[in-house]
Amino acid sequence: MDWTRKDLLDLQSLSAEEILTVLDTARQFKAVGERKIKKVPALRGKTVVNLFVEPSTRTRISFELAEQRLSADCINFTAEASSLRKGETLADTARNLEALNADFIVIRHKAAGAPHLLGRVLNAHVVNAGDGAHEHPTQGLLDLFTIREKKGSFEGLRVTILGDILYSRVARSDIWGLQKLGARVTLCGPPTLVPPVFTELGCRVTPRLEEAIADADVINLLRIQHERQRKGMFPGLGEYTSLFGINQERLRMTKPDAIIMHPGPINRGVEVDSEVADGERSVILEQVTNGLAIRMAVLYLLNGGHVPPAEVN
């Protein structure tokens, strides 16, 4: 199918078909990354602004590399949300960037809905690189891409997301994407971080780890988000690890072909111990590689690229 959206703001509003279109396109770009010459001219002459109003290293670098490999010109604009608020509003900042003829704005912001605000006021394409605890659509897409590579299809697949769901934008993007493609999602963690309201989003919610991982085909471990959390959600990291940390012993309770995912950065010894993170069931680094392909595919499609991408073949 042809891509018709101006922006990529969330996975909740995408159709299964649109999601598959991105995944199919990303497959082509992943192949590009394995070539000697890793650059294609798809976005030559286009300008991308990486507007990171919340600190990020990994996602920004992934986007930056994706832009460079598509031959786009990119600039990085990093600002603390607070200083932006004292001066001009986010919409004004973005309008200024658009006045410099930016074609794409990739935005990371700690306020949920900030990319939606930009999408409404700008003609430029807006890509959500994570908005508060709302969504992180490219992370969701790369998780889907990775699962598809490993498991083939989503129908009937059981995916367990473990940890800090309440403050996780990754969890929300994963939940929507997985459900749209036919997978069943279980959320597990202490009720302070995984409140029962998530059952209304169609998920199974349980605080019992054994139950959550026993039948899972995919276990996605989320980082404990120190920065987004209020105090008192759980007594401490030690207790969290003892209740929910994935170690070798717990890994043995899972299906033998269950894979371990993590959006990074991992806290070794907290949500996952080193043996598991570095073990053969872990696909954590493949996620990083796939993220680059996903971000290339997203920019390519938003730019009006066709499927399959002719230039890259």
Binding site: A112, D131, G132, A133, E135, R172, E200, L201, R230
Partner: peptide, 16 residues
């Protein structure tokens, strides 16, 4: 605390 919308299904969906 810093709540901005009703604590319920839609705050969970929207991450607010």
């Amino acid at each position: 605390s810093e709540g901005v919308m009703h604590d319920g299904r839609y705050s969970a969906v929207l991450g607010l």
